[in-house]
């Protein structure tokens, strides 16, 4: 088993775990944590399947991932701003509202 396969399998597992976290999480911060972990898993995935050149992993894939990391943090920052504002307005930190108290 090569290193790339090891990381590919880890990325798949983390992606699945992220999906689980996204579904079961109530707190928006937790959902964002899960989403970000899924994102990281996808980035590792891209790099492991892109193939290698003599000078390391495919440079195009690396640039793609680099762009993705920056977009992810921008989206996360905006989501966090939305969350804080929603908390200020409603006092809620989850998307379920009050009726889901079980």
């Amino acid at each position: 088993m090569t290193s790339t396969t090891v990381y590919l399998l880890a990325a798949s597992a983390v992606f699945g775990i992220g999906v689980y976290g996204l579904i079961v999480a109530d707190h928006i911060l937790r959902k964002l944590l899960a989403l970000n972990m899924m994102g990281s898993a996808v980035f590792v995935f891209i790099l492991t399947v892109a193939g290698v050149t003599p000078e390391g992993p495919d440079p195009l894939a690396q640039a793609l991932v680099l762009t993705g990391i920056v977009i992810a943090v921008a989206a996360t920052a905006f989501a966090l701003a939305l969350m804080v504002r929603m908390f200020q307005e409603t006092g809620l930190t989850s998307l379920q509202g009050h009726d889901g108290d079980d």
Binding site: A11, F15, G16, D26
Partner: peptide
């Protein structure tokens, strides 16, 4: 707060991971 545990969460997550 206590988190919901939908019945399908685990199989959906497992399938997603396996698919990837």
């Amino acid at each position: 707060p206590a988190r919901r545990r939908p019945l399908l969460a685990l199989p959906v997550a497992a399938l997603a991971g396996i698919l990837v």
